[in-house]
């Protein structure tokens, strides 16, 4: 392992100062399940590791006053999926947190870190995106918020500048008659990187007609991509298997995957269709179970 210093600030302000210090090349340590591997394999360089787990607000996991969710950037996956209220409201996020790595990884890995790493195959990003989640960032010039959908700017790249720290991810409240789901395709059944993934959210009106749809695909472009054509095709329609299949076919057209050891372009596009169809079916079922 390369040589570095370690600091564990207890306030966001202090952390931002450390991260902004020009005397250091600082990296953030939250769950450590990616950054420690990158540092050990010398794929990232650092002279200072800033452990943010001692900062209270980054550890906060709570429903907000308006019924949304405040998800501190250092909260591990296992805390998220153990909360019944979160499973009830943000099922797609829970779907993802349950399958990021094995249990040992979930004890440490954070959704915040998953977002900051900006891997195209990140499991938590498509769910965050369908919920219109917002990233709260603290920086040397104060705080700002931005949609999670705009947070990643490329493979392993995000919009954060030197000194910026992701504080939390805020999920807006969801509509009562909505449901969502996330699925990924992997060759094994756990401990694997998505070949393709899809998160779908649907909202039903009083008549059970789809009045809003969100579909976001993972691992099929440099960042998570929204399947807008598929979304449009769903709105105003009663849910049906045929409709989901049609949406799946449209979703395939939004994917811009590459050929690599995990899959071919052709196969990944095909998987987008399958996963869109399947997640829509679960999302609608979940929405319907709430309306009954």
């Amino acid at each position: 392992m390369q040589d570095f210093d370690y600091a564990a600030p207890i306030s966001t302000h202090e952390a931002v100062q450390l991260l902004a210090d020009p005397g250091h090349k600082a990296v953030v340590l939250a769950g450590g399940t990616d950054i420690l591997v990158l540092l050990r394999e010398r794929r990232r360089r650092a002279t200072l590791v800033v452990d943010v787990k001692k900062i209270a607000e980054l550890n906060e996991l709570a429903m907000t006053a308006d019924g949304g969710l405040f998800l501190g950037a250092a909260v591990p996956c296992s805390r998220i999926y153990r909360e019944a209220a979160i499973t009830e409201k943000y099922a797609a996020l829970v779907d993802a947190t349950k399958i990021i790595g094995g249990w040992q990884i979930q004890s440490r890995a954070t959704v915040g870190g998953n977002l900051c790493n900006a891997s195209p195959a990140a499991d938590s990003i498509p769910p965050l995106a369908i919920y219109d989640a917002v990233a709260e960032i603290a920086g040397p010039n104060g705080r700002r918020q931005m949609p999670v959908a705009d947070f990643c700017s490329g493979v392993g790249k995000n919009v954060m500048a030197r000194g910026d720290l992701l504080v939390a991810i805020i999920l807006p409240p969801i509509e009562a008659r909505s449901g969502a789901a996330f699925q990924r395709f992997i060759p094994r059944n756990e401990m694997d990187i998505a070949v393709a993934s899809a998160a779908s959210l649907v909202e039903l009106d009083d008549q059970g007609i789809i009045c809003k749809a969100r579909i976001v695909l993972g691992a099929v472009a440099t960042t998570a991509v929204r399947a807008s054509h598929a979304e449009e095709a769903l709105v105003g329609q009663p849910p049906s298997d045929e409709l989901f299949a049609q949406a799946g076919a449209l979703a395939e057209r939004s994917a811009r995957p590459i050929d690599d050891m995990r899959g071919t372009i052709e196969y990944r596009k095909h998987l987008c269709g399958v996963l869109t169809r399947r997640t829509l079916a679960i999302a609608v079922e979940r929405a319907q179970s709430k309306t009954q």
Binding site: Y6, A8, L29, G32, T33, L36, V37, V49, D51, K53, S78, W103, Q104, I105, S107, R108
Partner: peptide, 13 residues
């Protein structure tokens, strides 16, 4: 009380 892979935990933590 939580299982972790100790290769991905800094001893300082």
């Amino acid at each position: 009380g939580e299982p972790v892979v100790s290769c991905l935990v800094l001893a300082l933590e």
